[in-house]
């Protein structure tokens, strides 16, 4: 047994298991149909909201682009967002009309777009009472990414709340804040937001440590 107080406190803590890249075959584990595998009864995928879900139905699409300007065709993304009231609902249940968690992937062929079918989240109040503008938390996994990259997607048509968002304002460069703003489009009467993730170089997306 370890004698209390015999070592500095930090040594009484275990180290986190180290991260490794999800690799090019991540789909076998987390996106079965993309790998060409049959799906199981229930899979975690990109339809986060069904039409009857409360809130404004939206589609979110984008690409992932590397430092050479080339499409990253083997990326897997995870999304985590609040509901239309700005509340996080941890219980994942495919029988519910809305789940705050989803996965999507870029594609090996064509335009290589990922997409999510969801609802627009509400603004979220932080513990200190400050209001964060509506956002979707995104994590990016891929071959060549040693530890997943964490970012946030904000909405172009929330200019006022975006301007007051304490997290956007924590980004020192105002120009870089713009990398987190998804552009609103309307396609066949449906609302779609476009959010391209640039891993490196010009217009590099802001990634967070938290």
């Amino acid at each position: 047994m370890q004698q209390p107080n015999s070592r500095p406190c930090s040594e009484l803590m275990l180290r986190e298991t180290a991260s490794q890249t999800a690799g090019p075959y991540v789909h076998i584990g987390l996106a079965l149909h993309v790998a060409g595998l049959p799906e199981r009864d229930e899979e975690i995928w990109s339809q986060m909201a069904r039409p009857e879900a409360e809130g404004e139905p939206i589609e979110v699409v984008g690409t992932v682009i590397d430092g050479n300007g080339d499409l990253v065709r083997d990326a897997l993304l995870e999304a985590w967002q609040a509901d239309a009231q700005g509340q996080y609902r941890p219980e994942f249940d495919l029988h519910k009309p809305f789940n705050g968690f989803g996965r999507t992937a870029t594609t090996a062929e064509g335009g290589s777009e990922w997409s999510l079918t969801t609802i627009k989240p509400g603004a979220v109040t932080r513990g200190d009472g400050k209001v964060m503008a509506p956002h979707i938390n995104l994590a990016v996994f891929a071959r060549g990414i040693n530890i997943h990259l964490q970012t946030r997607l904000y909405f172009e048509d929330e200019a006022e709340t975006n301007a007051a968002c304490p997290v956007l304002n924590a980004i020192e460069s105002p120009a870089r804040r713009q990398t987190l703003i998804a552009k609103r489009e309307e396609v066949d009467g449906k609302v779609r937001y476009r959010f391209d993730i640039r891993l490196q170089g010009e217009g590099e997306t802001v990634f967070f440590d938290f």
Binding site: I44, G67, W80, Y88, D93, I145, P166, R176, V206, D209
Partner: peptide
């Protein structure tokens, strides 16, 4: 070519956005 060249932006005040996550007990 897949590594950010800018520093990560640190969120000193983690919010409910980072402190929650999905619970999969009802995933069949």
């Amino acid at each position: 070519a897949r590594s950010p060249s800018q520093a990560l932006v640190s969120l000193q005040a983690p919010s409910v956005s980072e402190l929650t996550g999905p619970d999969f007990r009802r995933l069949r």
